[in-house]
Computed example of a mutant assay.
Amino acid sequence: MNAKPDRHLLVVDDDDRIRNLLKEFLTRAGFRVTVAPHGEAAGRLMQTLDFDLLVLDVMMPGEDGFAFTRRVRSQAGEAGRTPILMLTAKGEGGDRIEGLTAGADDYLPKPFEPQELLLRIEAILRRAGPRDTGPQVLTMGRCAFDSGRGELTRDGAPIRLTEAEVELLRTLARAANAPVDRWELARDTADASGRAVDVQVTRLRRKIEDDPKNPRYLQTVRGVGYRLAPD
């Protein structure tokens, strides 16, 4: 698969085990993944974050997947057009029709093969077309980071970055102002525990921050990971 890490998925499922398995599997496939246990939490996330696709379980307590899909489709702007892939333990045609009528883009009955899930996600994203990746250059006080070139400057002078630091900054820049999970940041490092990421963040703070011990731009999000907060 050629998943791109700037593609941000929201997985909504009330089953903790399935939700965590999907997050791990899709993250390893190259996506940014955020999870929510029910529609209410997913709705709050959509108020502050942009997603390229929702992977949505139908059977959830409270607001089910059909109702949540209708709520999403009732929103104005890009949020209301977010592609939706529905998951359900039921294979009846009536559920499929109801999901598609509510506004889902595709429908996958459980149990399913992980590879089929990836293929369906990729197909939906291809149909949706390329996303707006936002500004290529982010400013952080006296520093600027050109994500396309992988270059960091301070007062116009280049600052040397390791390859790992460039990739870390790029990942954080793609999710600017939103927290990124430490596990996701550590995915491509040799140390999956996240300690290597912590070391890289400490080094980057020395290069970017006026006061590295009280960071303004490269922030720690307790219990989650890190966030880049450019000007």
Score class of each variant (00 low, 15 high):
1 M>K: 10
3 A>W: 11
5 P>D: 15
5 P>T: 14
5 P>Q: 12
7 R>L: 12
8 H>F: 00
10 L>G: 14
11 V>L: 07
12 V>C: 08
14 D>G: 06
15 D>K: 06
15 D>R: 08
16 D>F: 09
16 D>Y: 06
17 R>L: 14
17 R>Q: 12
17 R>N: 11
17 R>W: 05
19 R>V: 09
20 N>T: 12
20 N>D: 15
23 K>N: 08
24 E>S: 09
25 F>P: 00
25 F>A: 07
26 L>H: 13
30 G>Y: 05
30 G>P: 06
31 F>L: 03
33 V>D: 08
33 V>S: 06
35 V>K: 07
37 P>R: 07
37 P>I: 08
39 G>E: 09
42 A>C: 09
48 T>H: 06
49 L>P: 00
51 F>Q: 11
62 G>F: 07
66 F>D: 02
69 T>L: 03
69 T>F: 01
71 R>H: 03
72 V>F: 03
73 R>P: 05
78 E>P: 14
79 A>H: 04
84 I>T: 01
86 M>G: 07
88 T>W: 06
88 T>V: 08
89 A>P: 04
89 A>G: 15
90 K>F: 11
91 G>V: 06
92 E>V: 02
92 E>A: 08
93 G>Q: 14
94 G>D: 13
95 D>S: 09
96 R>D: 09
96 R>Y: 05
97 I>M: 14
97 I>W: 00
100 L>K: 11
101 T>P: 02
101 T>L: 12
101 T>D: 13
105 D>H: 15
109 P>N: 08
110 K>C: 03
113 E>T: 05
113 E>K: 13
114 P>N: 10
114 P>I: 05
114 P>L: 10
114 P>F: 02
114 P>Y: 00
115 Q>H: 09
117 L>C: 11
128 A>L: 04
131 R>C: 03
136 Q>E: 13
139 T>Q: 15
141 G>V: 02
142 R>P: 09
147 S>K: 14
148 G>C: 11
151 E>V: 14
152 L>F: 01
152 L>M: 06
153 T>G: 04
158 P>C: 11
160 R>L: 12
161 L>V: 02
163 E>A: 05
165 E>D: 02
166 V>F: 00
167 E>Y: 01
167 E>G: 00
171 T>Q: 00
171 T>K: 00
172 L>N: 01
172 L>M: 08
179 P>M: 01
179 P>T: 04
179 P>K: 04
180 V>C: 07
183 W>F: 10
186 A>Y: 02
186 A>C: 08
187 R>L: 14
191 D>K: 01
193 S>K: 13
194 G>K: 11
196 A>G: 06
198 D>F: 02
201 V>R: 05
204 L>F: 01
205 R>Y: 10
206 R>V: 06
206 R>Y: 02
206 R>S: 11
208 I>E: 10
209 E>I: 05
210 D>R: 06
214 N>P: 00
216 R>Q: 14
216 R>S: 10
216 R>A: 12
219 Q>W: 04
222 R>W: 04
224 V>P: 03
224 V>F: 12
225 G>S: 08
